[in-house]
Structures are given as C-alpha cells and as structure tokens.
Amino acid sequence: MIVRYLLAALVAGLFSGVLMTAAQEARVVPLILHAEEFEGEAAPAGEGTTPATSDGAATTQEHSSLGAVIFDVASALSPISVAYAHEGEDHEDGGIMFGMSRFSGTLLANLVTGTGFALLLAGFSLVSGNPITVANGALWGAAGWLAVHMLPAIGLPPELPGFPAADLTQRQIWWVATVALSAAGLYLLFLKPGILAKIVGVVLLAAPQVYGAPQPSDISSNVPAVLGAEFAVAALATTLFFWIVLGLSLGFANEKIAKAA
C-alpha cells in the first residue's frame, strides 16, 4: 500500500513536470535567453563589490590565450551551448549532463523537480493525515505555491541571469528556512482548528519576512528592469500553474492509483 501512494506521487510529479516544461518554454525561457545577452557585459556603474563581476573580465581575457582558441573550437563542436555554461564563473567543469541539449536538461530537471515537489506534497498530506483528493487538490497546490514560491519571493524575487545578488549560501539557507516556516504556518492556518493555531501560523509566515532575506550591497545590473519585471511575473505565474496541475493530478492519482488496490 505504501508503494502505491509513492507511485501516485511519481505519476502526478512527472505529468506536472512535462506540462511545466511547456509553460516554461513558452513564457520563461525566452526571458532567460534575452537576459543572458546582457549578462557578460560590465555593469555601467561600480559593480566592483559583487561576486558576479568576474564575468566580463574573465571572458575578454580568455580570448587572448591559446587555450581559449582550443576552448572555442571545442565548444563549437560540442552539443553544449557556450552561453549556457556561464563562462568566466568559478566553476569550470560544468556542462549539461550526458551531453544533452539545453532543452533536454531543462525537461529532465523539471521531471526531477516535479517528482520531488509531488513527493513533498504527498508526504506532507500523509504525515498530517489530510488526504489530497480531486476536490481539494487545487487548494493543496495553491498552498504549495504560496509556501515554495510566493512567500519566499517576497524576500528573494525570482532572479534572471546577470541580476545582482547576495552570497549564494546565505540566500539558499534563507530560502529553505522560509519554505519550511511558510509550510508550517500555512498548515496551522488552514488545517489546525483553534485561534491559537491561527495566531502561531501567522507568526511563522511573517517571521522570515521580518528577519529579512540577504540582499546584495550593490544593485546595479545590465539586465533591463522591464525584463526583470516580466520575468518575476512569468516565473510566479508558471509555478502557480505547475502547482495547481500538481495538486489536481495528485488528487486524481491518489483516487485512481493509491486507493484502487
């Protein structure tokens, strides 16, 4: 029986991951590609303190050495797109897994991420003892979107390549903590009866926002602001779509697979 619940999450996650890939290719990826055209250039005014600076300098230096010529030839023959590898950043052994195309990499990552979120949602439902059905699936999805995307985005808006940002590790810690606190807060707010639970829930939702997300010291960027605004909305809209599909399909899979034994 346990396996059937996990199978239901797997099916819902893969399905949602495929639909999410289509939504991303339509609304989000074009904006990422557009932003990457600005990413390598030096910022107009003092970007000297941000870690992302090395981009521009490193790219120009590379073209003067013999190694760079070999690199250019190799990258021309390689199936991996160069712009994608973020040349000049401090990791050098990157590249897409198994020599896949950029699209295949994104699709694979969406399948893994979709399955991961489906398992997290299913696990949350199982542990808390509140079944996900077709009737309430969209609400579960919306709550997942709030916890994983909307509430963390208040402190760390979805960022385009080339955007200035604070230390990566600190942002990741804040992000994970905010997702966990938001999920706990939403659980108390929506699923636990009693006024005390509601109050504690609101406090948990507000705590990471009051504490504040790590912010960059210098916010200058080459990427046009309009692009950033379009991207933030597109990223939140497509993830909302993903979570609604995920909640509904998980409810459907629960009823068809998990309980059909």
Binding site: V29, I96, G105, L108, P152, A153, E159, L160, W175, A235
Partner: peptide, 15 residues
C-alpha cells in the same frame, strides 16, 4: 548547468 533554466524559473536562489 543541467537544471539552469529550471532553477531560474522556479525562483531557486541561483548563481
């Protein structure tokens, strides 16, 4: 690099 576009689309802290 493999998950690059996914990370940005999902708003994961990246770079």
């Amino acid at each position: 690099d493999t998950a690059h576009d996914t990370r940005h689309s999902y708003g994961f802290p990246c770079h």
